[in-house]
Simulated assay, not measured.
Amino acid sequence: MDIRNLAMGLAAAAALTGCVAPQGPVEVTRFVAAERVSSLGQGNVFVAGAPGDAADSLELAPYKAAVAEELARLGYTETDRDSAGQIAEIAIERFVSGGENARSPVSVGVGGSTGSYGSGLGVGIGINLGGGPKEQVSTRLSVTLRDTASGENLWEGRADLRTPVDSPLARGRANAQTLASALFREFPGNSGETIEVEVSE
């Protein structure tokens, strides 16, 4: 092999190695109203976006579908709002981070806060102005299960996933299913505990 070609090959390999960004895991935190645990995992539920202008946007649709699938697996029956004993409110926050894992300098979020996390965000879109070879997409799925009659929060959870921008799990249905599956694993979970759920592409 020509020495120049070998040097170029090694340089390319080194560049590729430097571009690799870690995958997952999903970091999950849940909060449970201990006195209402018996109300969870059963009855009729309505899946909705968190209050806000973008609550029912197209971007939120795969997350609503993924959450509805998980709730059905747990024993809930999805129904319309008027027939629901509980409402599952969903919010999404997304942003792009650069090589030093610093938050993108521009982040736009709209929608309403869910539960007591106080994020104040429904659907968020991050815009990276800096470029760079190691960009990652971070997505947070937040879900609140609320009693329809009283408005009381029965359960709250959030799941955070960081993936390389070119990962199949970075967006769309795969991203939604990965987050929802991790969030509702071993439901309802231990209140206040944060766990990590490994994922694979």
Rank of each mutant, 00 (worst) to 15 (best):
M1R: 02
M1P: 04
M1D: 05
D2S: 13
R4I: 15
L6K: 08
M8N: 11
G9Y: 14
L10F: 07
A13F: 05
A15I: 13
L16F: 08
L16C: 04
T17C: 10
C19A: 15
V20K: 12
V20W: 10
A21L: 07
A21P: 01
P22N: 04
V26T: 09
V26K: 02
V26D: 05
E27V: 01
F31T: 01
F31Y: 11
A34L: 09
R36F: 13
V37L: 10
S38E: 06
G41F: 03
Q42V: 01
Q42C: 08
G49P: 01
G49F: 12
A50L: 11
G52M: 13
A54L: 14
D56H: 07
L58D: 14
L58R: 02
L58M: 09
E59C: 06
E59T: 02
P62A: 12
Y63T: 04
Y63C: 15
K64T: 05
A66W: 09
V67N: 04
A68M: 03
E69S: 04
L71C: 07
R73L: 13
G75F: 03
Y76L: 15
T79A: 12
R81V: 13
D82H: 09
A84S: 09
G85P: 12
Q86M: 15
I87E: 14
E100K: 13
E100F: 09
A102D: 14
A102G: 12
R103V: 13
P105N: 12
V108G: 10
V110K: 02
G111D: 01
G112M: 12
S113A: 15
S113K: 06
T114M: 08
G118L: 02
S119Y: 15
G124P: 00
I127Q: 05
I127H: 06
N128H: 10
N128I: 01
L129I: 14
G130S: 06
G131A: 07
G132P: 07
P133R: 07
E135C: 05
V137G: 02
V143N: 08
V143T: 02
L145G: 06
D147V: 00
S150N: 13
G151P: 06
E152Y: 15
N153I: 14
N153M: 07
L154H: 00
L154C: 10
G157D: 03
R158K: 13
A159I: 11
A159V: 08
L161T: 01
D166E: 11
P168V: 14
P168C: 07
L169W: 00
A170W: 03
G172Q: 00
G172W: 00
A176I: 02
Q177W: 11
Q177N: 10
T178R: 03
A180E: 08
A182L: 06
F184Q: 09
R185V: 11
R185G: 01
E186F: 01
P188N: 01
P188A: 00
G189N: 10
I195G: 02
V199S: 08
V199K: 05
V199Y: 07
S200E: 12
S200I: 15
